[in-house]
């Protein structure tokens, strides 16, 4: 019995810096025999210390999730794909007694074992204060990215990366992070002297830098802004519309279960994709980018895989 429910399998072709051109099935693209490099992006968000699967009696997610099975799934994909990148969009902490007792140590160790490539910081990652997060950093063998929190007056000074780049099979991928406004959401005593800066201008500046100066073919934002908010509060939807040079926003915070990545026409009329996979490790997000050797076109396939 196949217990893996593949919510979506969609393929579409797009072009970097331009709009998505057409919806064509993967096979017909492959039949073109264009040379491309496949980059497989895997992602989680708002895992909230859900190390064990939900109990089988859980009314909403019976038996779903669990770190050991997520690891199996990730290992399987790694064995099948050459260029895998694994990201988390924040709120790793808080949600089960594992966090209350171990304060994030096990979460970071597990993510290190699964070889996460980067994560961003969610509001709940401040739950034991900025010191609490700092104390756990040695257990994380992967970098944290955030560009709109200024940590210069805190213990996290110089420990969080504004952006990082990866080189996979000749394809350069730039990754940066954005965090939600802390005031009103996180106790001041927990974020201390962290300064929150408006994500929009920062996102535009860094995305342009990554694309133009660094020459990244793929720019990814790990965002803990939330998919959508009432009023005009900055969200992934607003971010996507009002920026350019971002190819993919991996979101979190609002625990949004997207069936497939949302396509938003950005400032340069190109497509920025937004994906978010609920919470608690119930799903693993997957998007495969196929980048051609001319660096002009890519197309993608995405599936959110239920971990059960």
């Amino acid at each position: 019995m196949n217990n893996r429910r593949k919510f979506i399998k969609q393929t579409l072709i797009g072009s970097l810096g331009l709009t998505i051109l057409n919806l064509i099935p993967f096979r017909s693209f492959a039949a073109n025999k264009k040379k491309y490099t496949k980059i497989t992006i895997l992602h989680t968000n708002d895992v909230h210390s859900h190390i064990e699967p939900f109990p089988t009696k859980d009314p909403k997610y019976p038996g779903l999730g669990g770190a050991a099975r997520r690891a199996t799934l990730i290992n399987k994909i790694r064995s099948e794909e050459k260029n895998v990148l694994l990201f988390d969009a924040g709120d790793i902490f808080q949600g089960t007694p594992y966090f209350n007792k171990y304060k994030g140590e096990l979460d970071f160790k597990l993510m290190s074992l699964m070889q996460y490539d980067a994560a961003t910081i969610g509001n709940h990652d401040f739950d034991n204060g900025i010191e609490g997060l700092n104390d756990m950093l040695p257990f994380a063998k992967f970098p944290f990215v955030n560009a709109n929190y200024d940590f210069k007056n805190t213990v996290l000074k110089d420990k969080i990366h504004e952006h990082i780049t990866f080189l996979k099979d000749g394809v350069k991928i730039g990754v940066f992070g954005l965090g939600v406004e802390l005031d009103g959401l996180v106790d001041k005593k927990n974020y201390e002297k962290t300064i929150y800066n408006n994500p929009l201008p920062i996102a535009n500046k860094i995305a342009a830098y990554l694309k133009e100066t660094e020459g990244c073919q793929l720019v990814i934002c790990l965002s803990h802004l939330g998919y959508e908010h009432p009023l005009n509060k900055i969200s992934d939807l607003i971010l996507a519309k009002n920026t350019k040079n971002i190819d993919l926003i991996i979101g979190g915070h609002t625990h949004t279960f997207l069936e497939k990545p949302t396509e938003i026409k950005n400032l340069s009329s190109a497509i920025t994709l937004i994906n978010q996979v609920g919470w608690a490790g119930v799903n693993l997000g997957r998007i495969d980018f196929f980048i051609t050797n001319t660096n002009k076109d890519y197309f993608l396939k995405s599936e959110n895989i239920r971990v059960e």
Binding site: I51, A68, R69, P97, K109
Partner: peptide, 27 residues
């Protein structure tokens, strides 16, 4: 059951001592 959905042993053995300690505390 899908074979990909079994627990990864290395991951599970990392969790095990934490789980046991936690259970002790929860008791």
């Amino acid at each position: 059951m899908d074979s990909s959905m079994v627990n990864d042993l290395q991951t599970d053995s990392l969790i095990k001592p934490y789980r046991e300690n936690l259970e002790k505390e929860m008791n």
